[in-house]
Amino acid sequence: MKPFLLSHPDTMYNCSQVYCSHSLAHTSYPCGDPYFGSSIVAYGTQAITQQMVPQMLGLASTRIALPVELAEDGPIYVNAKQYHGILRRRQSRAKLKAQNKLIKSRKPYLHESRHRHALKRVRGTGGRFLSAKQLQQFNAELVTDAHSGPGPVNVYQKKDASEAESHPSRTGKNASITFTAISGLTSMSGNSVSFRRPEHNFLGNSPNIGGSSQCSGGLTFGGGARQCTSVGR
């Protein structure tokens, strides 16, 4: 169960206890509830609130201004139907923030074991993981590598490759690559074979620019430096 998604009765009681007055005339709207007139200021909600403003063009003509202290560049007008909902969500987020329950920054991965498994996997040109078939082909080419200069390793496009990242990655620099593990909702495919081979550093840095990378087995990663983009609210 996710109690975070359901509003607790405590939130309702906090509404009457905390009094935050604002100079706004409440429109007498049938959906409105004067019980939620007060509000707790939640920081960082401008980005989400301002996105609702363009949606309201052409819809209901009634607009109610949100509390001014939250918007530095003037009042934000929202759909009157959503006014109390927005204030209620602000209180929920402020409550969670007061309890220090929100995550400060995103973790590069969710599961340690999956992260370690991904580090052990062999990568082909462009940074993509090699499948079992490609790994056999790769080993065969290693054995018969008597020519001057190795042949190009063909990394086939996976049928279910749906994650397109815009940052190409360099092989041999796994320590600096950020992984993001997917939760159990993602189906684990092709995970029965575990590759426990050491990294082949001699793959070097092939000049493959623009290639997108895809990790099978429920792992996705972004190339380059470690990125932890946290959207402030």
Binding site: F4, L102, K107, L110, T180, I182, S183, T186
Partner: peptide, 10 residues
């Protein structure tokens, strides 16, 4: 994170 957000792959 996995309780608050949808999976990013989906």
């Amino acid at each position: 994170e996995q309780d608050r957000l949808l999976p990013i792959a989906n």
